[in-house]
Every structure is written in C-alpha cells, then in structure tokens.
Design a binder for these strands. Structure first.
Lengths: 251, 251
DNA sequence: TGAATAGTGTCTGTTAGACAGTATCAC
DNA sequence: GTGATACTGTCTAACAGACACTATTCA
C-alpha cells in the first residue's frame, strides 16, 4: 500500500484520455434597440471564414470563468471597471465527440450581459470581431455547434430576466425605467405595457433604487424628464417578472 | 495557404494544454421520507477512504450526458427501463486549477432524480456505494470540491421542482397527490398545506393526469383510498409552484 | 398646438394561502 | 368509536394586466 504522497509522485497523467477544454462566450449587448451578439470570423481552419463565438483554450492555472473573462476582454478590448460591470456566468458544457474535427474538445460555454460597448478592437486579434444583431443569425453558417450554444444562451438570457435583476447589466450605472423596459422588450422580443411595468419594477424589493435625480432632457420625441435609478441589492426578484405564458414552449 | 484537409492531417493535438475531463453525478432519491444522495467511498488516493460523488473519466466517442448515465448505471446496477425513468441533466462544470491534486481535471457535474432504488450493487465496483441522507452530509469529509457540487445540485433540485414537473421522477409511474406532496416537502424541507397543494397540482395544465383508479387501501394511519395519477405532458409548470419567499436568499 | 412620454389611479380576473368542513378508511 | 387522511368549499390578500388619466416635454 502506497501512501498518498507516493501515489501522486508516481502518477502518470498520460494514462487518462486527453481532452482539450475550451471556453466560449455568448456575449450579449443592446445596440440601437436591438439585441446584438459578439462574433468573430475565423481566420484558420477548421471552419475558416465562418463566424464563431469568441473563445479559446483554457490555460493552466486559470479558472473556467476567469478564462471566459479573459477571452471576452481580448475580443472587446475591455478592461478594468468596464469589464467588471459585465455579468458573466457559466451556461453549460458542450462535448459531443464529433463537435470539433481536430480532436476531442469540450467547451464550457459562458453567457455575458454587457452595456452598450464600442466596436471590438480589431488590433487585439487577427480575427475580425463584430457585434451582430441576433435577428441576422439565421442566414449565417456558424462554426462548430455554436448555433446551438447561442440558442441555449438566448433562452437562458430571456429566463434570467424573469427572476434576476440582471437586465440592469445591459445599461449604464444610472438608467430610467423606460430604458430598463426597453431591455426587457428587446430580449423578450415583444412590447410590454409601460404603466404596468413601471409600477411593477418599483414594487419589487431591491430591484432598483432612486438616485434622486432626473434626466437632463425629456425623450427625443417629447415627454417629461424621467427619474433616474440604479441597481439595488437584490440578487433574485420576488415576485418575478414573468413572461406571458407561452403554451407552445410548455409541452 | 493550406486547405482544411491538409490542416487537419498536420494537426498536432499535443500542442494544446491537456486536461482530463470527468463527469460526476449528484444522484438524488427519496427513501423513508428523506432525501438521499448516492455516494461512493474512494478505494484509492487521492482522498482514499473519503466519500465522493460517483463519476469517472469521459471515454472517447462518448457524449457527456451519456457518460454520466453510464456512471450512474454502474454504481446503481440499474439498466433498461428503470434507468430510462431516471431524470438526468447537466448541472455545471467545475474546473478550478487545484481541485484535483493529480492534474488539471474539469468535471462536468450532472444531476439525477431517481425513484426509490435498491441498495447499490456492491459487485460492480470495488468502491463501497451507499444512499446517504443529505442531512448526514455535514459531518462527512467529502473528496475534491464535491461538497460544493452537492450544494449546487440540491439548490438546483429545489428550484427545478418549482417550475418543472420533475418531482414525479422521484415516484413510481403511478402515484397519489399525497406522495407527490411528500416529494416537495422532502426536497424543500418544510411542510406544505395538503388541501391547497392538492387543488394547485390539479389546476396546473399538463402536470398530472388521472389513471381512473385508486389505491387498494387507505393510508397506514387511516383515511380514504386516494386516486392515482401519472405524469402528464407538460415540460414546464404554468403557473409554477413557488416556494415561499426566502428573504435571506434573495439579497 | 400636437404628439409622445412619465408616472399614477382604478378595475377585473387569477392566484396563493388560510381555514373550515365532509366523507372515507385503518385500527 | 377515534383519529388520520383525501378532497372540496370559501374567504382574503396579493398580483397581473387592461384601461384611463394627468402632467411634462419636444418639435
């Protein structure tokens, strides 16, 4: 019987099947009232020329989520406080044996919510990176199984807006209730009743708190100046803001 | 410029950092009115003698969830129709660099809901396997980061019961409303109002459907014979069965 | 002035939860 | 019979959603 230390010293990592582990990021933001997704155009095979999620191999000594945050930083050129304001969570892992023609690759997908960001810095990477409206996705051929990962990410995003205050992560630190409503309408893809939404948001404990200030001007098409709010301390919304029941998705 | 086929032929998998990928399973069942968890006692280092989640390395050509199902089958001795009735879903991936002292290991954790099962077959594996009440977990030293995985799994289970009909997966194909209520009470850890629960379950479309039959006898402590139901076709519950608001978990 | 928006009031139907009550069965 | 359970009825408070209305601002 060997003790644990001897066992570790004699341990041969090569005895176990080798798998590459990558992270991919479904990064969402809202631009011009439409939901956008960060994509890169692949510069080398496989899937050369196809669009793909930003991502890459997990480095030694790097945690999974840290790896995703690094990939996001590289592709967006973001750093410091602005990167810290981006919400990042694990979405799920994708490991079908044939999902990458090169070798066995398990990808740990992440989901990110970002406020409106500048166009990706082209200098950081040889690949072209863009924010693409999600409505333009259907016509694109995506690399690997990224189309499925994106579908899962979008559904997770829609669901997260129901029971968490993460919609605020799409906005600047201070925002109006109308801006918050626009986030919900954009992600869910259908209009909400302005008056009811307003009352509902203010009634959920810990969702938003008043800054005491208002916007400098009214809206571009008229209307009074709106009060400004910031995200408060709730991590879950009680009661939740539920999407209207969708019979077709239930069965 | 090489074409894609030439690229793949020249590709060297060893150029990328090697990581081992495992699956671990948080398998839950209900025995004697208490929530139980499947654990194995490790027979070799690291963490020799400690209790751990069932799991193992993902095999080549094996999908992640298929791998989890195989591990579950091996440890429970289950197969065929009984295995197919077990609910299995991906929980999340755990990949902190130092979570395994041997090498970099990323574990894709899964969550399973099983009906009451016989004691694990000891013959299939050298390790001892048991169903342990989750209330007995606090006193145990668990291997790796399995304590955290279990916590995440239990919270996912509690949450899943709210908006999916998966509570039925803890029961036989036919069950009474009281048995279903017992599942909720056990997983959530507090009693529910029998009358309100009864009416609520029957009012949610697609949750349960009547078999037209009743139990042969009343309860062990008296009472009328109960009608029998089976799971119906809903995949989501609308409206959901929400846990009472827990202020402390919200902030 | 006209149109759009911010924010509030009110009404209705649905739901959660408390409570009560009746019928049935084990012991 | 006694006590526990299955199931139903009723009431109340909370909530979602529809609609209406006022005040404010831009053009």
């Amino acid at each position: 019987m060997v003790n644990e230390q001897e066992f570790l010293a004699a341990y041969d990592p090569g005895a176990y099947p080798s798998v590459a582990v990558t992270v991919d990021v479904v990064a969402l933001t809202i631009r011009d009232g439409a939901l956008h997704l960060l994509l890169i155009q692949r510069g080398q095979p496989p899937f050369e020329g196809h669009w793909a999620l930003p991502g890459g191999f997990v480095r030694p000594e790097e945690d999974l989520t840290a790896s995703a945050r690094r990939e996001l930083a590289e592709e967006t050129g973001l750093g410091g406080e602005r990167l810290r304001r981006v919400h990042l969570e694990q979405l799920g892992s994708y490991g079908a044996p044939d999902r990458d023609p090169r070798m066995r690759v398990v990808s740990v997908a992440h989901l990110a919510f970002a406020p409106d960001l500048p166009d990706p810095a082209a200098g950081t990477d040889a690949d072209a990176a863009i924010w693409l409206p999600v409505t333009a996705l259907t016509s694109r051929q995506l690399a690997f199984d990224h189309s499925r990962i994106i579908d899962d990410g979008l559904e997770r995003a829609r669901s997260k807006l129901e029971y968490t205050p993460l919609a605020t992560r799409f906005l600047a630190a201070e925002f109006t209730i109308s801006e918050l409503r626009a986030v919900y309408e954009t992600v869910w893809g259908h209009p909400l009743h302005a008056g009811n939404f307003h009352r509902k948001v203010l009634s959920v404990p810990g969702f938003v708190e008043s800054t005491g200030t208002s916007t400098e001007r009214g809206g571009t098409r008229g209307g009074p100046r709106a009060r400004l709010y910031r995200a408060s301390d709730a991590r879950l919304l009680h009661p939740a803001l539920l999407r209207p029941a969708r019979e077709e998705t239930v069965r």
